[in-house]
Amino acid sequence: MAMPLLDAIYKTAHEHSGGVEALAARMGVNAQVLRNKVNPNAASHHLTAREADLMMALTGDFGVLHALAANHGFVCVKAPDDVSAGDLAVLDIITLIWARTGDVGRAVYETLADGRVEKHELSNVRQLAYTLQQGLIEMLGRLESMAD
């Protein structure tokens, strides 16, 4: 679910349970300083890589990681702790891929329906294609775990 990096940083901090104040306390930083660091319009304060890593670890929100990957043409897929290997596990992910493929197809159809491609429509197609790619990579991981 890739969004612009600065938006992902802002969302991660502000949607944390208890908001920026609670997250800042858990990170051991001043709430106003963190608020400034996650503000996409602030030019004077910047989040460090260590702080972004800690923020993701504490919130469980990995939108920042997905945004960084998408900005550079990569797709992030969480490596499962316990990969379910077997025909049913692969079938499960394949049905998810089919559903996501349909979502991409529907979004492309709706984007082209009026003869124009608008930026917000392209953003939606990109997001859906990204989640489709994640499913395909997960499927490969499950198949690889079954290989002799």
Rank of each mutant, 00 (worst) to 15 (best):
H72F: 03
I97H: 01
L140P: 06
N36K: 15
A2R: 03
W98T: 13
E118T: 01
P4M: 08
A79P: 00
G19F: 13
M55C: 04
P80I: 02
V64D: 00
H120P: 02
E118C: 00
I137A: 14
G73H: 13
K119G: 01
R35G: 06
V125M: 10
D114V: 04
L5G: 08
C76E: 10
M55H: 02
S17K: 13
T59P: 14
V108N: 01
A107K: 04
L91H: 11
S44C: 01
D92Q: 11
N41L: 08
E138R: 14
V38R: 08
E21Y: 10
H120I: 00
A85N: 12
G19I: 10
M55Y: 03
A25W: 04
S84G: 05
T48S: 15
A22G: 12
A129P: 06
L128Y: 08
W98R: 03
L140M: 13
N36P: 00
R35E: 00
V20A: 07
T95P: 05
A113E: 05
R100H: 13
I94K: 04
A52M: 15
A25C: 02
R100G: 06
A79G: 06
G86E: 09
E138Q: 13
Y109A: 12
Q133Y: 02
G18K: 07
V33L: 15
M3S: 06
D81L: 09
V29D: 01
H120K: 05
G73A: 09
A67N: 09
Y10E: 15
S44M: 03
A85Q: 12
T111N: 05
N124T: 09
A70T: 01
M55K: 12
L47E: 02
D114Q: 11
R142K: 15
C76F: 12
